[in-house]
Design a binder for these strands. Structure first.
Lengths: 166, 166
DNA sequence: TAATAGTTTCAGTATTATTTGAAACATTGA
DNA sequence: TCAATGTTTCAAATAATACTGAAACTATTA
């Protein structure tokens, strides 16, 4: 397999992976393209290489910047903007999970919080309350964890856990 | 808020949460409904309570069983099947991540594996190879971790990490 | 300030994913 | 065996989501 072929395969796979996890295919593909590009790319480069429209490229580049996965880069003497991806995969993983935690985990926690103190003592009610309480625990812990974890910690944990569990 | 209202809100929220993470809304809602039900439910119960068709209910119940999140239950003297959810949230979390790892993480690892030994020494090629190597490391570690983690370990980790990071 | 280069927006269109419902299939027990 | 009850499948309909492309907008430079 040649490098260009490999790149295509990677872009495709990253797109499929993202889309299975609720990140739209184009966004994941733009991200993949920037991840594997040595130099920053312009909007036009992205459009050409992925065969997508200007609007689509622009939208997804903005979204990626919003998620802190991509940075704007200015080349001296060039008027238009270029884009490059954060290449540190740990940072990428952390940013993605934090961003999503904020958007999707926090609303869930807030709801579970509310549901905590509902009256009722039937078996049904008890069962419901135990469920939400447990879920609340789990999500809160995940939340705290994501809030506090840094690259060093994650590395420490992965090392510790894999050693321990081998 | 009354218990029935709370249940509806929970089902809705769990559905939205799931759908943000690439699990279809109905599947998440069926799961939510079973999670908060004290007794096992029949296909009909699920259809009625969620206002979904028989086909949909059936498909998603099967999918949930496939993911080990739901069990078939037989009531003595009853012909039809009933369903109940695994209520241990740790187990639920583990099952979900394992299932998805198998379906989406493993193909990605396989690809990255292949991409590892591609020839080429241009800066572009080097940059590409570093990227895929790093990603491979990250995904492999996640993979190992998910493979080996059990409830006890996760609890240990959460405790250790939250203490450590406070 | 006018021309040019570059960026963003958004209504319409296309694509993909989900859901329905009816027919086929399976199982039970009279 | 055959009706009755319950389950599964799947093609078609619907709904949700993403994408396009052209127009509007903004910034830059001559």
């Amino acid at each position: 397999m040649t490098i260009p072929e490999a790149k295509d395969r990677f872009i495709e796979a990253w797109g499929a992976f993202g889309s299975a996890w609720g990140i739209n295919r184009s966004m994941a593909q733009v991200h993949a393209l920037l991840l594997i590009s040595h130099d920053p790319l312009s909007t036009e480069d992205v459009m050409e290489q992925l065969n997508i429209s200007r609007g689509n490229a622009n939208m997804n580049l903005r979204a990626l910047i919003d998620w802190s996965l991509v940075r704007r880069v200015l080349k001296p003497g060039e008027r238009r903007e270029f884009f490059e991806a954060e290449k540190d995969v740990w940072k990428v993983a952390t940013h993605i999970t934090r961003e999503r935690k904020k958007r999707e985990l926090e609303p869930l926690i807030r709801l579970l919080d509310e549901l905590e103190d509902i009256p009722g003592a039937t078996p049904e009610a008890k069962s419901f309350k135990k469920m939400t309480r447990d879920l609340h625990d789990l999500t809160t812990r995940l939340d705290t964890l994501l809030d506090h974890s840094t690259r060093r910690d994650v590395q420490w944990f992965v090392k510790a856990a894999t050693t321990l569990l081998k």
